[in-house]
Each structure stands twice: as C-alpha cells, then as structure tokens.
C-alpha cells in the first residue's frame, strides 16, 4: 500500500480524467513560460485549480509530470513501412511530433545542460526508445546499411535541428519547424542519414 502511494496513478472516473488533463495542461503551459527549473508543483496546482496533494496523487514529482506530457501518441501513419520512402515519411511524422513539443524540449534543455541526473536519464531513455523505434521501422523497410549507425545519425542530426531551433526561435520553434521549407529540409536530412541521397548527385 505504501508503495502504491508513491506511484503515479491512473484516473478511474471521467471527472478524474478531466482533473488529470487539467493538471497536464497547466504543466505544459508553465514549462513553456517559465522553464522546467522555474516551475513548481505548487504553481501547477494553482493554475489547474486543484490542491497540491491532488497533483502529487497523479504525479509524485515534476519529472513524472514531464514524462507524462512526453508520452508519444499513436502515429497517424502506420509505423510499419514497407519501403525506404515510406520509412522516411514515418520518420518525418515522428519528427513533427517532437517539433510540436519544442517548448517542452526547450524547458528540459536547461536541467540537462546543468547536469541534472534525472534530466540526463530522461534523455538516455528517450534516445534508447528512439533508436529502438528507428531500428523497428528501418528493418522491415529493407534498409541495407548498419541499422545502429543509421539510428545514431538520425538521433543526433534531428536532435541538433530541434535544439538549434529552440535556441534560435525560442517557443516559436515548433511553428518555424512546421514551415514547408524546414520540413523539406528535415526530410532531406533523414534521406541523407539513410544514404538515400548519395547516388543522385553528379
């Protein structure tokens, strides 16, 4: 029972789901406005119009809140790509999701650069998940090269795009990355990471 108390809980009723969503929305706004370091559980509770214990009930700590916000939804495209071109589409849509959450990526960069251990472990988990996902996509799509090396190039290049965008454009980064010119560039970078551009140049 004591153990259960420390865990993040799932809501059981529609009202509870609404409360949990309100807390998440408040946290999303505050992280974007004040950064991760500048946001406290108390501020989240106050903006969501709930008590501090209500926030703790669903999210024992600030990182639990952050992780809950960064849970990837189902991708609109089938994650199974049968060709490399389809794989590029899936990878681009995955990147769109990160771009939509650019304000959260920016908020997390502060504790990450400060050397916060939980922020580092969050990044390591995210990287491991992304690499697994990329390998699961590229394998069935018939990628002939070294899967791990491709996942490594994709992770670092696309992280670089995202980190640079949030440092250059702040919270407008998501909007900027959605512009066709940036989206086409991301698609090109993905193709380069998969070696799909090598032969086309004279």
């Amino acid at each position: 029972m004591a153990n259960q108390l420390r865990q993040a809980r799932q809501p059981r009723t529609p009202e509870a789901t609404a409360t949990r969503n309100r807390i998440l929305q408040a946290a999303r706004e505050l992280f974007a406005e004040r950064g991760f370091d500048g946001t406290s559980i108390r501020m989240v509770a106050s903006r969501a119009g709930v008590s501090d214990p209500a926030v703790h009930y669903y999210f024992p700590g600030k990182y639990d809140l952050f992780r809950a916000l960064m849970v990837q939804p189902e991708y609109p495209l089938p994650p199974r790509a049968r060709t490399l071109d389809e794989a590029v589409n899936v990878l681009t849509v995955m990147f769109d999701w990160w771009a939509d959450n650019a304000a959260l990526v920016r908020a997390m960069l502060e504790p990450q650069l400060r050397g916060d251990l939980e922020a580092l472990s969050y990044l390591r988990d995210g990287e491991a998940r992304y690499r697994d996902e990329v390998e699961r996509i590229l394998g069935p799509a018939g990628y002939q090269g070294d899967l791990q090396a491709a996942a490594d190039r994709l992770f670092h290049t696309l992280s670089g795009v995202l980190w640079d965008a949030v440092m250059t454009y702040g919270n407008a980064a998501g909007e900027v990355l959605r512009q066709p010119v940036f989206r086409e560039r991301v698609r090109l970078f993905i193709r380069c990471a998969l070696g799909m551009e090598a032969a086309s140049e004279t």
Binding site: D164, F189, C192
Partner: peptide, 8 residues
C-alpha cells in the same frame, strides 16, 4: 546538415 549534426 553539417551544422545540425555537429550541434546534435
């Protein structure tokens, strides 16, 4: 591409 990768 070079800048994004090196930054990452």
């Amino acid at each position: 591409l070079f800048m994004a990768a090196v930054t990452g």
